[in-house]
């Protein structure tokens, strides 16, 4: 049944999700929401990998997805710790208020 939907449809939807994620990173100011948008981008990539893997009949793409998911989990641990450290010293998580370093 899966084969009846062409590969391009999966690729287009994951590209759209990826673009939504990147727009979120660029326009949002809350560090947590930026971080969630990055996770959205990684999930779009996972969709691409799985659909390629399925259409090529090759399993290595799906194995890669497991690694991407575990990397994303590690990323979440580090990211939330950094955001927490920021909040402790500055009482804000809005990235436009974090502007000590320039020129």
């Amino acid at each position: 049944m899966l084969q009846s939907i062409p590969l391009e449809y999966y690729l287009i939807i994951s590209a759209v999700i990826f673009i939504i994620g990147s727009i979120g990173v660029i326009t949002r100011r809350n560090a947590i929401i930026i971080f969630m948008s990055i996770e959205l981008m990684l999930n779009a990539v996972n969709l691409t990998l799985v659909s390629f893997s399925s259409f090529l009949g090759d399993v290595s793409g799906q194995i890669f997805v497991f690694f991407v998911m575990s990397v994303a989990a590690a990323e979440a641990a580090i990211g939330l710790a950094i955001i927490l450290a920021l909040f402790r010293s500055k009482q804000t998580i809005y990235v436009d208020e974090v502007n000590l370093l320039k020129w």
Partner: peptide, 21 residues
């Protein structure tokens, strides 16, 4: 230091998204 870490983290994982795509 925390600010540099936050900037590095957000932009770095953004770039990792492109890399893995």
């Amino acid at each position: 230091a925390v600010e540099s870490s936050l900037k590095y983290f957000l932009l770095g994982s953004f770039a990792s998204g492109f890399l893995v795509y």
